[in-house]
Amino acid sequence: MRDVRDALMVARNSDGKLVRRPLSPHLQVYRWPLSMALSITHRVTGVGLGIGTLLLTAWLATAATSEAGFERFQYFLGSAFGLFLLFCWSLALVFHLMTGLRHLLMDTVHGYDETTYHYTGIAVLVATGVLTVLIWLVGLLTW
């Protein structure tokens, strides 16, 4: 028996003739505009931040249990790998916050025209870079 979904792929054209509906091309045929890259990065960083929240809860859990465990955890966060994780996490957090603010702006039905959309995208990238560097400068100077 044929797949029943095949029936949805058949329609009549304006002459009344039965034709197969055309399939639209998928992602791989497009070159990557900024908006597409920001959109998928927003989702990827969102998933990353969800997983990264485990780092926060682990930190709180060790702070609530034992001094030795907490010291070990702080030592891990201060190690090269710990700092690398924290850097990736802060970058993802700031990026997701910035694209999130852009999404909230778009929820008010603003910024949809091509020029504004492109420039708010560039603004997101610049703000992410500046804020992340600023956070790390303050963090490392006061550490």
Binding site: E67, L101, L104, I135, G139
Partner: peptide, 24 residues
């Protein structure tokens, strides 16, 4: 939740910077 997370995230970053070398 996303609107609530804007000030919460800023508060969180600010707090973490304060607690960089904190003891238990």
């Amino acid at each position: 939740t996303s609107v609530a997370l804007v000030p919460l995230t800023l508060w969180f970053i600010w707090s973490v910077l304060h607690l960089a070398d904190a003891s238990q």
